[in-house]
C-alpha cells in the first residue's frame, strides 16, 4: 500500500474521481500545467487534458459562479481557490446560489460542486494566506463544510464530497499537506460526510478538534494518558452539518469537553458545539466546557504566527484545568 502525504492523497482522489466519472472537471487558477501552487493537481492536466483541467482567468467570483452554472447543467466541477484568504469573493455565489439552488427551485436544479481551498496557518505564508474561515462558511444553510486531518481521511472525504449531490466546501489544512504520510489505498472508497471520527475512545474527557488541530490534540491525548487521563478524541471532519450525536454521546460518557480550533474564538464553531452540549448534555457535565482557539485578532504575519496557533501545551493546560474542576 502506498505511503501518501495529504497532498498526494488529494491528487489521488481527484484522479480517481475523474477516471470514474467523465463529468468531473477541475478548474481554478494555475491548476493546469503548473499543477496548482501546492501541486494538488500535478499531472492531471497532462493525463486528462486541457478540457477537463482548466486554468481559469484570475477570477474567484467567476470560479465559484461558473461552478454553480456547470453543476446545474450536468458537470461535477471541482473548483480550486488558491488560498482560503482569497475565498471571500466566492461568498456571494456560495451563499446566494450554490447553497440555495436546489431549495429555491424545489429540486429542479441542483448544485453538485466542490470548492477546494488550502486553509489555515502554520507554513509561514504571506499575509492573507493563513486564515481559518470555516465558521462563516458553516453559517450558510445548504452548504457542507469539510476539513480533513490526515491523508487517508482527505482521500475518502474528498471522494465523498465530489460524489455528493450538493455543494461542498473542502478546506485543506496546508500545514498538513506534506508534514506526514500514511498508507492510503486507492480503493475508490469514500468516507461518510456528516460523520465525526472517534480517533480514540476514553472515559474522562472529550476533545473535539479538526484539521491541523488534530495533530496537537493527538499529542495531548498521549501525554494526558501518561498522567492517567483517558481522552475520547473526536475529529469532527464535517463542520457543517455537525455530527451532534457523536459529540453528545461522548460527553454523556465523559462529562467533560475541550474544543480545539485554529479559528478565532468568538463566534467560532466551538461556540456552537458548547451551546449544543449546554442544551442537551447539561446533566452529564462535570466541569465547564473549555475552548482552545485562536485569538480574536487578525491572523498574524509569519513572525508572530506561532504565538497565535493553539498547540499541544494549550490543549493540555485546558484539559488539566477541566479535570481539576471536578
Amino acid at each position: 500500500m502506498a505511503e501518501l502525504t495529504m497532498i498526494e492523497a488529494i491528487r489521488t482522489a481527484l484522479s480517481r474521481a475523474m477516471e470514474e466519472d467523465p463529468d468531473v472537471i477541475i478548474f481554478g487558477e494555475d491548476v493546469g500545467i503548473d499543477g496548482g501552487v501546492f501541486r494538488a493537481t500535478d499531472g492531471l492536466f497532462q493525463h486528462f487534458g486541457s478540457s477537463r483541467v482548466r486554468d481559469t482567468p484570475l477570477s474567484e467570483a467567476l470560479i465559484a459562479g461558473m461552478a454553480v452554472g456547470a453543476a446545474a447543467h450536468g458537470l461535477r466541477p471541482v473548483a480550486e481557490i488558491q488560498f482560503s484568504g482569497f475565498i471571500y469573493p466566492t461568498l456571494d455565489q456560495l451563499a446566494n446560489h450554490a447553497s440555495r439552488l436546489r431549495n429555491r427551485t424545489r429540486g429542479r436544479l441542483t448544485c453538485p460542486m466542490v470548492l477546494r481551498a488550502p486553509y489555515g496557518g502554520g507554513i509561514k505564508a504571506p499575509e492573507h494566506h493563513s486564515e481559518s474561515i470555516e465558521a462563516m462558511l458553516a453559517h450558510i444553510p445548504g452548504l457542507r463544510v469539510v476539513i480533513p486531518s490526515t491523508p487517508a481521511r482527505a482521500y475518502g472525504l474528498l471522494l465523498a464530497a465530489i460524489r455528493d449531490p450538493d455543494p461542498v466546501v473542502f478546506l485543506e489544512p496546508k500545514r498538513l499537506y506534506r508534514s506526514t504520510s500514511e498508507a492510503v489505498e486507492d480503493t475508490g472508497e469514500a468516507l461518510p460526510l456528516d460523520k465525526a471520527f472517534v480517533l480514540q475512545e476514553g472515559t474522562d474527557l472529550t476533545i473535539v478538534a479538526w484539521g491541523a488541530m488534530i495533530k496537537g490534540a493527538t499529542e495531548a491525548t498521549l501525554q494526558l494518558a501518561e498522567s492517567g487521563i483517558s481522552v475520547d478524541l473526536i475529529d469532527l471532519a464535517t463542520l457543517k452539518p455537525i455530527d451532534r450525536a457523536t459529540i453528545r454521546a461522548s460527553v454523556e460518557k465523559t462529562g467533560r469537553c475541550v474544543i480545539v480550533h485554529e479559528a478565532p474564538l468568538t463566534a467560532g464553531l466551538g461556540a456552537e458545539i458548547s451551546a449544543d452540549l449546554a442544551e442537551h448534555c447539561l446533566t452529564s457535565l462535570l466541569a465547564p466546557i473549555k475552548r482552545v482557539a485562536g485569538y480574536d485578532t487578525v491572523m498574524p504575519y509569519l513572525r508572530l504566527e506561532a504565538h497565535y496557533m493553539p498547540d499541544t501545551a494549550h490543549i493540555i493546560d485546558a484539559a488539566r484545568n477541566v479535570m481539576e474542576f471536578s
Partner: peptide
C-alpha cells in the same frame, strides 16, 4: 449580476458534454 457566471458555467457544461 451574480447570474452572469452561471451562464458561463452552463456554456462550459454544453461544450464539455
Amino acid at each position: 449580476a451574480s447570474q452572469f457566471p452561471h451562464a458561463a458555467g452552463v456554456a462550459l457544461a454544453k461544450v464539455q458534454k
